[in-house]
Every structure is written in C-alpha cells, then in structure tokens.
Write a protein that binds this DNA or RNA. Structure first.
Lengths: 154, 154
DNA sequence: TTCAGTGCAAAGCGTTTGCAGGGTG
DNA sequence: CACCCTGCAAACGCTTTGCACTGAA
C-alpha cells in the first residue's frame, strides 16, 4: 500500500516524500476527510506540513488512483482511500449523517446510462435526501436550516 | 407564476420587490444558471442589482419552492425553475456536457433507499461520468485535466 | 409608519499559484 | 546535481455578513 505509493510514484517519475506518505496515511486512517481534516491529522503526528502541500498531494494521489473524492457538503470535498471498497454515499440533509452503500444500489442506473454509452463514476456519486429518523421527527436537528446557506450538504 | 411569487411571499410575510421578480424570471429564462449568470442576466435588463441580493433572493426563492439547485461543477451551484419537470442531471466530466433525464432513471434507486425509509431528493441529484463521445475519442477536449483542479465538474 | 429588503464594502472560507530554497533519486 | 517538491505568502473565486438607508404594505 505505501509500497504501492512508492512504485506508482516512480512509474511517473515522481518522488516519494515524507509528506506524501503522511497524507496518504491520513486519508486511510480518517476514512473520510476534507483537506483541512487531513492537514490537522498530519500536523498532529508530524510537525509542519503546509496546506498547499495537502491540496497538491491529494491531487497527485488521486491521479495515481490511491484516493478518491466526493462532495458530501457544500463546503470542502471529502477524500477516501481506494483501499476501501467502492461505495455510494447517501447523505441526509437534515441530520448530515452519511451512509455508504454497495454499488449494487445503483446498478440499474449504471445499466440504463450504459445503454447510452455513458459510464457512471459510481465512487463519486452522492445521493441527498432525508433519512428515516429525520422524516419521523420533523423537529429534529435544531437550528439546521432546511435550505441551508453555507454549511452542510445542500 | 409571478403571481405565484407574490402569493407565496405574502403567505410568509415577505415582500414582493422588483429584484425578486427579475431574479425569478432570470432563472426561468436561463433554465440552468449560476448566481453570477443570473446577476449578469438581470443587469442586462434592469440596471443595478447587487450580487448579495442575488444570493439572498435565490435562497428565498428556494425556500418558497420556486427554484431548485444542483451542483454540476466544483464551482458555483446551478439554479433552475421548478416550473420545469423534475429531472436528474447527468454530467460528462470530460466534455462537461449536461443531459437531463426523467426521474424514472433513478426509480430503482429511490425504491431501494425508500425501503430504508430514506427519501431521495431526485431533483438535486447529479451523476458524473464519461459520455459516449468522450469514451470513444480519448484525445477529445484538449487541455482539460482528468482529475481537474478548480474548474469543471469533479 | 414599520420592518423587510437592498446596496455597499469588508470579511470569510476553501483553494490556487509564483517563487525561492530544500531534498530525493 | 537535476529537477521535483515544499513552504510561504499573496491572490483568487464564490459567498456571507454588518450596517445604514430605502421602499413595500
């Protein structure tokens, strides 16, 4: 896995640096993290790593196919390791819970679009809506605006 | 439709202003527009309207159920009128084309999640991937990065 | 006449970029 | 010892916010 990093970097004439190892490890450990969360996590272990390095590295790691991202909120994107099985994200706009589903969930969608020659990026998919709990108690999650300006998923 | 605006505003003790009419009309006419595009369009017709008014108004219009938004790119969100039939957006990351599909497309997905008590917001859904044309000619769309930093859909 | 709505300007957040110095291969 | 990578700081794009004024009801 980290060896994977080394070899994949080499293949493209890129270099293995402590920062890149740390950032990849952070994404793997956090499982779902924004660039900023990655930064915080990395800084907790090693001393100084710069925000721009995190952005640049996440881009590289994504090109290498070691991490992926989705948009689970209106703010920062969320990165996760490709070591995890590919999954579809289902997000409740009310309580902001995120559940992961097997790609089977969207097999019919993938098939239907496939007939048009369109190939769906399943891992990137985020489905928004309202979860069971929140539908039940409409008084839940105090202070979260329905239409939501800046902040959580919209 | 604009009468709709007047009445819906009144119901909530809000006021009907020229800006609100203009902005709603702009969204309807542009069919799919970012806040900035709305601003430009409105300014073309009427004189000065402020950007912050556009943001505040789009929020109000969405609360009133007159417009909706999706995220078709990493940059600004896209607004459309609810007068249009609800539709699912399918976006090619390569050439950035956007196609609208009938909600039927995701009926199985909606049904599956429905069993868990989750209610999908179909109109908000954006499916990313690669369209037939782009899959065919992998040399297409010069200068567009695959992983794409800032810019189009990611 | 009241209070919602607007314009303006400044701030905020997440992200990108130019550059010079540092470290990997 | 090339050249990739990093840190730093400034800039950027989009959005939000505070405030005083304006105008809809």
């Amino acid at each position: 896995m980290s060896d994977d990093l080394a070899s994949r970097l080499r293949e493209k004439g890129l270099r293995l640096t402590p920062q890149r190892e740390l950032i990849l490890r952070a994404v793997e450990e956090l499982r779902h993290a924004t660039p900023d969360e990655v930064l915080v996590h990395v800084r907790a272990q090693a001393s100084s790593v710069n925000a721009s390095t995190v952005y640049r590295t996440l881009e590289v790691l994504e090109e290498l196919g070691l991490v992926r991202h989705t948009h689970l909120s209106d703010r920062a994107p969320t990165y996760h390791s490709t070591l995890e099985h590919e999954h579809v994200h289902v997000v409740c706009r009310r309580c902001h819970s995120v559940r992961s589903y097997d790609p089977d969930l969207v097999a019919p969608l993938v098939a239907a679009l496939g007939e048009d020659g369109f190939s769906v990026d399943v891992g990137h998919l985020a489905v928004f809506g309202t979860c069971a709990d929140c539908a039940a108690s409409s008084s839940r999650s105090p202070g979260i605006r329905e239409t939501g300006r800046r902040g959580q998923p919209t």
